[in-house]
């Protein structure tokens, strides 16, 4: 199933060759597909999302309604296409905020060490001691749900994890001799962080960003499923499942396809991350 593809311009030469297997390629293709859908959703949706187009509710898949109709008789395909904007958009914004904050704090803590590192690590570890869905519940209960609140909450929930990960990597790099060499040369902290450490943790940090993106999509869907995420009349994929949960005992497509949409996104991100293109050096000497 896993075939190896070499895309080396000069086999046997000094140029890097890359290995990117089919599993990873399929993952990347699916991610790109959902990205395009999220950007162009209003243009490709066959029906306006609020329009009650079908006389029947929980209608089956048909030529007119590819993915059936929902509990009010609205077109499920259109609602999923537009819902991708909320699921993908909110999750992306949250994951970038969480990782940017976490990585910068993590690198600074690793290079500075001492009391700053200890206090920051303790505090953020304590926040890791709150189950994530619960954190979301409590915040939403306190301040109500809106898109900015969701982005900030999701970012706050996953920042400690991103910090912990980046700090652990940075501590390892920081202990390497080349950082010691730079330090002995008289270099200052910003140089150490951005020139010596950051390029060497970038790969794992990007992979971590993907993993965290999946977590955030799952958590956001979970919150919306509980009715605490994206609020009507807007709906992300989790909210679509909630709206149509009555149709579950009928096996309605309206409840199955939003689930499939979530699964295709999260599984394809996982597939891509586990099979990132690898730069390979042919070590035969």
């Amino acid at each position: 199933m896993i075939s190896v593809l070499r895309t080396s311009p000069r086999p046997g030469g000094t140029g890097p060759s890359w290995r990117f297997n089919w599993v990873g390629r399929i993952g990347l293709a699916m991610i790109l597909f959902w990205a395009v859908v999220a950007i162009f959703a209003p243009m490709i949706a066959p029906y306006p999302i609020g329009e009650i187009a079908d006389w029947d509710y929980f209608g089956p898949m048909s030529g007119q309604f590819w993915l059936g109709s929902d509990y009010l008789g609205r077109d499920v395909l259109s609602r999923i296409l537009v819902g991708s904007r909320y699921t993908v958009g909110i999750s992306l914004a949250a994951v970038f905020a969480a990782c940017a904050g976490g990585v910068i704090l993590g690198m600074v803590a690793a290079v500075m060490g001492g009391l700053f590192d200890t206090l920051l690590s303790r505090l953020l570890d304590a926040f890791n001691g709150i189950p994530s869905l619960l954190f979301g519940l409590v915040v939403v209960a306190a301040v109500g749900s809106s898109i900015p609140v969701l982005v900030l909450t999701l970012a706050a929930i996953y920042l400690p994890g991103a910090y912990r990960f980046a700090r652990a990597l940075s501590v390892n790099v920081n202990a390497m001799d080349f950082v010691t060499v730079a330090r002995a040369r008289g270099e200052r902290t910003p140089y150490l962080i951005f020139r010596e450490i950051f390029p060497n943790i970038l790969g794992p940090v990007l992979a971590d960003l993907g993993v965290r993106f999946v977590f955030i999509v799952l958590l956001l869907s979970g919150l919306s499923f509980l009715g605490l995420g994206v609020q009507p009349p807007n709906a992300d994929w989790g909210a679509l499942v909630r709206e149509n949960i009555e149709g579950l005992s009928l096996g309605a497509p309206a409840v199955i396809f939003p689930c499939i949409a979530i699964a295709t996104l999260t599984i394809s991100v996982n597939m891509f991350i586990d099979n990132l293109p690898k730069k390979i050096r042919d070590r035969s000497e």
Partner: peptide, 28 residues
């Protein structure tokens, strides 16, 4: 990895679909 990649409610929905709707063994 499939179970980890999907939301908990989806595992639940699938379980309902399989055990209650299709097989009819358990109440939904």
């Amino acid at each position: 990895i499939s179970v980890i990649s999907v939301p908990e409610f989806m595992v639940a929905t699938l379980a309902v679909l399989v055990f209650a709707v299709w097989l009819g063994w358990l109440p939904a």
